[in-house]
Design a protein around this nucleic acid. Structure first.
Length: 678
RNA sequence: GGCGAGGUAGCUCAGAUGGUUAGAGCGCAUGAUUCAUAAUCAUGAGGUCGGGAGUUCAAUUCUCCCUCUCGCUACCA
């Protein structure tokens, strides 16, 4: 809660990375809340702009381009287009949806770097890195493959071995190879710039831990965790040819690291939007709010503020209402496993139902913890809430008006106590919604807003106009007038949440009012004002539609299980290569968990001619007590390696299923310990 | 293993600087009602607030330990 009042608002929403399409998780975590908040502020006639755009730099995009044989620009053009359209289709109304590959951004980011550079903010460090002489370029970690020093996988990447999951540094690799030219890279010195986050630690502690105790617990806690662990300088440049070039002499072939470059995208988008951009970024009377997912907390709460602080002339975010993650039918969303509801596919299956999804995602937003999206819940909320409560109330009010008063708003005659209480309630509800929105409690806000429709239903049920129309038509005039005023108020109150449906409802009512301040007014519709015949605001979603969606996911799951993308075959080796591996049969004698680790088990393995101690990371799938007696295959001549202080003398062979489960490669019972495996 | 977040009715979630009968929506049951997309309205049944110990006159709310889920981090096949 900010005691301070602000003149204007700058809303930023996390820049989606332009190497894939958007799914429900993105919408629920970031864009629906940010859009609701922005629409609300606009409706209050606040000076507000909402900026977003595609994050288009970074190594994954260059890799995707290489894989598909197109340029990085072509990759980002494609997804920028798709995602921009998806946002528009869902009514996410950014004032600008820009992109970091455009010129304004390049200039802005470049200038920002230069300012910090000239102020002497950065630390310069020179380190050895692999260089491809044929391609005349330094190699990003992902562009180098080689043999993993841990598991012997010969196609490990420079940053990680996907076979054993170890994170690596390129210099760890045995026999490194450049994936660009296939040549053997050489080590060469290269200079990089680092942002000394550690120096800003005291300031960050004061700013966040003391001055922003009102941030959400998940955000505050995450920041505290980082600050308590101690911050380290972070490199802001990379050797890569895709990105914003480092604007310093002698920095050829270097670009700004994508995390440095991306948040500046908020600034450049604003610049592109308005020549007045500085008043949004450099005036203390602007309230800046970052909408992000939890994966971005550290960048928006620690790194970017540090950059802004170091630059000196920018304001800092006042709040960062980060959401947690959304699961789908009880499983984590996953782009690579296609476990997602893609925005464009949703609209194909449910055309015109943007608001239904907006509603469900807001009502069940992962505000405090990870939440689950299920199709059944989607159907229930649509049928029981949007259709039964909201749509039905509107329909009742309009149908009755046509039935009794030829579609003209009847006049308000005398008000009973209940009438007055009902009208008063509108304002109370509106204030409550307002409070929730100001505090970024969107699920509470939408629930409260729906109470207005509930109020309408209750009012009709209590006053029973259909009963008294014959005995007291004057009274019915008042009743329907109030029911219609509630409907008009609903268009105002629900507009931030359900913009498409409220547009439609305004059409039914021939109502043009948009201002939030009108809410609570009891004469939004003048007596005699004509309204249209109602069509349905929301329609029921049938079981078959839900089953279809579940079937779709079911198929995805089967595909994943069965034809799980076969990992590409390793490069061919010779028979000699093979014979260098000494594989033996063994039996596990004892096994115990290595203390203070999550996955490691220490085993004694009988190889017949000797006993070995082997440490293996299988504790997540096997209990130590079930291991003794198990036959295993052992790579016996692997160089010993110290793991958690224990020397592991060899490696036990395991196969890994697509779902990550591990299984021993078990020789048959008849195999004698120590026998060679050929 | 360390750190952070979370574990509250069948489901999805609120809440409490510790204090009388712990809340909402959906679902369920019963009743009312028919203007309405079999929609609505009322009433009700459901919870030893993850488990254990401690502090206190009093804990679901504070402290400690344990456990489960998610994330970050370390270690790692």
């Amino acid at each position: 809660m900010t005691a301070k009042t602000y003149k204007r608002y700058l809303i930023t929403s996390a820049l989606p990375y332009a190497n894939g399409p958007l799914h429900l998780g993105h919408l629920a975590g970031v864009y629906v809340p940010s859009d609701i908040y922005t629409r609300y502020l606009r409706q209050r006639d606040r000076d507000v702009i909402s900026v977003c755009g595609s994050d288009e730099h970074g190594v994954p995009i260059t890799l995707k381009a290489r894989k598909e044989g197109i340029t990085p620009q072509e990759v980002v053009d494609r997804y920028h287009g798709i995602n921009k359209k998806a946002f528009e289709d869902f009514g996410i109304t950014f004032d600008i949806y820009s992109r970091t590959s455009n010129q304004v951004h390049h200039e802005t980011a470049s200038e920002f770097f230069k300012t910090l550079y000239e102020k002497g903010v950065f630390i310069e460090k020179t380190a050895e890195q692999y260089y491809d002489e044929e391609a005349a370029t330094f190699l990003a970690d992902r562009y180098i493959t080689g043999t993993c020093p841990h598991c012997g996988n010969s196609s490990a990447y420079g940053d990680q071995c996907e076979q054993c999951g170890t994170s690596l540094s390129p210099t760890d690799l045995v026999n490194p190879v450049s994936t660009i030219s296939g040549s053997k890279p050489v080590r060469k010195e290269t200079k990089h710039w680092y942002l000394p986050l550690d120096k800003y630690e005291p300031w960050l502690k004061q700013w966040i831990l003391e001055e922003h105790k009102e941030w959400k617990p998940n955000v505050y806690g995450q920041c505290k965790s980082w600050l308590d662990q101690g911050l380290h300088p972070r490199a802001v440049s990379r050797d890569l040819d895709w990105g914003v070039p480092v604007p310093v002499e002698g920095a050829d072939g270097k670009v700004l690291y994508v995390w440095f470059d991306a948040p500046i995208g908020y600034i450049s988008a604003t610049k592109e939007l308005t020549p007045d951009w500085e008043k949004y970024w450099k005036d203390e009377e602007t309230r800046m709010v970052h909408f992000i997912g939890k994966d971005n907390i550290v960048f928006h709460c620690i790194v970017f503020p540090t950059m802004l602080k170091a630059e000196g002339s920018y304001i800092l975010p006042d709040n960062v209402p980060a959401n947690e993650f959304l699961n789908l039918e009880n499983e984590k969303l996953s782009t690579s496993r296609n476990w997602a509801v893609w925005l464009h596919e949703y609209l194909e299956d449910f055309p015109g139902k943007q608001d239904v999804m907006r509603y469900v995602l807001c009502a069940n937003a992962p505000e405090n913890k990870d939440n689950d999206f299920t199709w059944k819940d989607f159907q229930n909320r649509n049928n029981n809430e949007l259709v039964a409560i909201l749509g039905n109330f509107i329909n009742r009010a309009i149908v009755l008006t046509h039935k009794y008063f030829e579609g003209k708003v009847p006049e308000l005659t005398s008000l009973t106590e209940q009438d007055q209480a009902t009208l008063k309630e509108i304002e109370i509800i509106a204030q409550s919604v307002e409070r929730s929105l100001e505090n970024f409690r969107f699920r509470e806000a939408i629930k409260t807003a729906m109470d207005l429709a509930r109020l309408g239903n209750k009012y009709l049920a209590d006053t029973e106009p259909w009963k008294i129309i014959k005995s007291d038509p004057e009274r019915v005039k008042t009743i329907l007038n109030i029911a219609l005023q509630i409907s008009a108020n609903l268009t105002l109150l629900l507009d931030p949440f359900l913009p498409f449906s409220m547009e439609k409802l305004r059409g039914f009512l021939n109502f043009e009012g948009r201002s939030w301040d009108l809410i609570g007014t009891e004469s939004l519709l003048a007596p005699g004002h004509p309204i249209e015949k109602a069509s349905l605001l929301f329609e029921k979603i049938e079981d078959e539609q839900i089953e279809q969606q579940l079937e779709k996911l079911h198929i995805t799951k089967e595909d994943n299980d069965e034809s799980a993308e076969a990992t590409p075959l390793q490069p061919e080796i010779t028979f000699d290569d093979f014979t260098r591996m000494d594989l033996r049969t063994g039996t596990i004698l004892e096994a115990e968990k290595v203390p203070k680790t999550k996955k490691l088990i220490k085993m004694q393995v009988d190889l017949g001619f000797e006993k070995r101690t082997i440490v293996s990371g299988v504790a997540e799938y096997f209990k130590p007590e079930e291991l003794p007696g198990k036959k295993v295959s052992v790579l016996a001549n692997l160089a010993p390696r110290k793991i958690k202080g224990i020397e592991s003398q060899g490696m036990i062979l395991l196969s890994e299923n697509p779902d990550g489960t591990l299984h021993f490669v078990e020789p048959s019972e008849k195999a004698v310990n120590g026998s060679e495996i050929n």
